[in-house]
């Protein structure tokens, strides 16, 4: 893969920025060029939040993802806003427990996972972001799945072993979801 432009989009509080950070760290650890750019309103929770992550084998130009290769939509406004911007042949991942409609485009690959519901069912409240990320890792070549642990160790401190385990469990759940 040469350059992949990824856009995570949803509400503030869903862990949008954290998910992007995880991916950016994995890119760094793999020796790739990466950029991570948040975009959000003044409020900490409840507002719209999105996060542009670019992984590339060549230096990253603009860090702003306007036409994602991979879109992760965690609420309806995000899907409405970015579905048409996704590149032809791109991939869209939808949290189907929060977004009732299907992807309208026929020239992109659509993937659905009820991440928020799975998180609630499996006692992983607040980790829908990592569940949907697991699904993304299964269907893309963004990173080698065996490396999830080392990237997680970079962003969850060793003192919080419990959180580390829960995040990995959430990724695994999404990865193996059929």
């Amino acid at each position: 893969m040469s350059t992949k432009q990824v856009l995570f989009a949803g509400f503030g509080g869903q862990g949008i920025l954290f998910t992007g950070k995880f991916l950016a760290y994995e890119g760094l650890l793999s020796g790739r060029e990466v950029s991570w750019l948040p975009s959000y309103g003044p409020e900490m929770r409840g507002g719209t939040a999105n996060c542009s992550v670019i992984l590339s084998d060549t230096p990253v130009g603009s860090p702003i993802v306007t036409n994602p290769d991979i879109l992760i939509a965690m609420n309806l406004p995000s899907l409405d806003k970015y579905e048409d911007a996704t590149v032809s042949g791109g991939q869209i991942f939808v949290d189907s427990s929060l977004i009732e409609r299907k992807v309208k485009r026929s020239d992109v690959e659509a993937n659905y996972i009820p991440a928020t519901k799975l998180a609630a069912d499996e006692n992983l409240t607040g980790l829908a972001n990592m569940i949907i990320l697991g699904k993304v890792l299964r269907h893309t070549e963004l990173m080698d799945y065996k490396n999830v642990g080392r990237a997680m160790a970079k962003i969850v401190s060793a003192k919080r072993k419990n959180l580390y385990d829960l995040n990995l469990k959430a990724i695994e759940l999404g990865y193996s979801y059929e």
Binding site: K21, L28, V34, S35, W36, L37, P38, V60, P63
Partner: peptide
């Protein structure tokens, strides 16, 4: 604000 908020290696 963009260069301030973004992360890069």
């Amino acid at each position: 604000g963009t260069i301030g908020q973004m992360m890069e290696p």
